[in-house]
């Protein structure tokens, strides 16, 4: 093994760079978390501190006094994200199943089509989408934020690739011999095999949906319907007095769930990024 043909100095530099970048990733969030426990006056006197203070509850009171309702936002975001994620993974698996298991005439054209529409971005259709939802009176509903997730081309692509490599068609055949109906076979036999792919895609779909701002911002007008990102986008606007401690706390509350999800599942997320890398 020739692994030691690099100098110690070079290796040290590598570590210094890595540690610097790690600090760069962590510092903004660390400042945010610590400042969320400090009072606005303290922050004004010294913007950076590594010692948490004792004004967390005070900040929370100011924050919730400003019509910022973290529980509500959390719940709304959760409903939308869970719904969208469930739709994405279930129906993408189903579509992939159709693409892999059955031999139908339009299969190849359909697949090519899915590849082609993979990059239709949501912003460019927003006007038509908004007008459509406005006309059918769904502007203050979560449905327009959940149902479109049924058609997620890139997830279908990923699921198809996974299925091709890990679903032996013999299993489907033998299920048929046992008299299992096709839909049943998909739900009871194929889906469990897809578990790893579902897990990866679920995480990304969830995070994506959780972080969305553009569509919710134009669709949801009622304060009770606001998602976390909308609430965040309104945090800065307080016309009479700037409460930095409360702003930091608001930001912290919005990312807390993401931090928890991320650090619990980071291994799968990183693996998922690598796995999905060929398609982005």
């Amino acid at each position: 093994m020739k692994k030691l043909n690099v100098s110690k100095g070079f290796l040290a530099m590598v570590y210094i760079v890595c540690i610097f970048l790690a600090a760069l990733s962590i510092m903004p969030f660390l400042i945010m978390v610590i400042n969320s426990t400090r009072s606005t006056v303290q922050i004004q006197q010294q913007a950076i501190s590594l010692i948490p203070s004792s004004h967390l509850i005070e900040n929370f009171k100011i924050l919730t006094g400003k019509a910022f309702n973290p529980m509500r936002g959390f719940l709304n975001s959760a409903i939308i994200s869970v719904g969208a994620t469930a739709c994405t993974v279930y129906f993408s698996s189903l579509t992939a199943h159709a693409l892999v298991v059955y031999n139908w005439k339009l299969r190849q054209p359909f697949f090519t089509f899915i590849l082609a529409v993979m990059m239709v971005p949501s912003q460019v259709i927003s006007i038509g989408f908004y007008q459509f939802m406005y006309r059918i009176h769904l502007t203050n509903s979560f449905l327009p934020l959940i149902l479109p997730a049924i058609a997620a081309p890139s997830t279908v692509f990923f699921m198809r690739q996974f299925m091709l490599s890990s679903l032996p068609l013999e299993i489907v055949e033998s299920a048929r011999i046992d008299g299992s109906r096709e839909f049943h076979t998909f739900n009871r036999i194929v889906l469990p095999i897809m578990k790893p792919a579902i897990a990866t895609q679920a995480i990304f779909s969830f995070v994506n949906s959780w972080n969305q701002l553009f569509l919710p911002l134009i669709l949801l007008t009622r304060q009770e319907k606001y998602t976390m990102p909308i609430m965040v986008s309104l945090l800065k606007g307080d016309i009479y007095k700037r409460e930095n401690g409360a702003i930091y706390l608001g930001l912290t509350l919005t990312v807390l769930p993401l931090f928890i999800v991320y650090f619990l599942l980071s291994k799968y997320i990183i693996a998922g990024v690598a796995l999905g890398s060929v398609k982005g």
């Binding site: 129906f91 993408s92 189903l94 579509t95 693409l99 058609a151 279908v156 096709e182 998909f186």
Partner: peptide, 8 residues
């Protein structure tokens, strides 16, 4: 194949 592609 067609039926399962319908939702999408």
């Amino acid at each position: 194949g067609y039926i399962f592609s319908i939702p999408f």
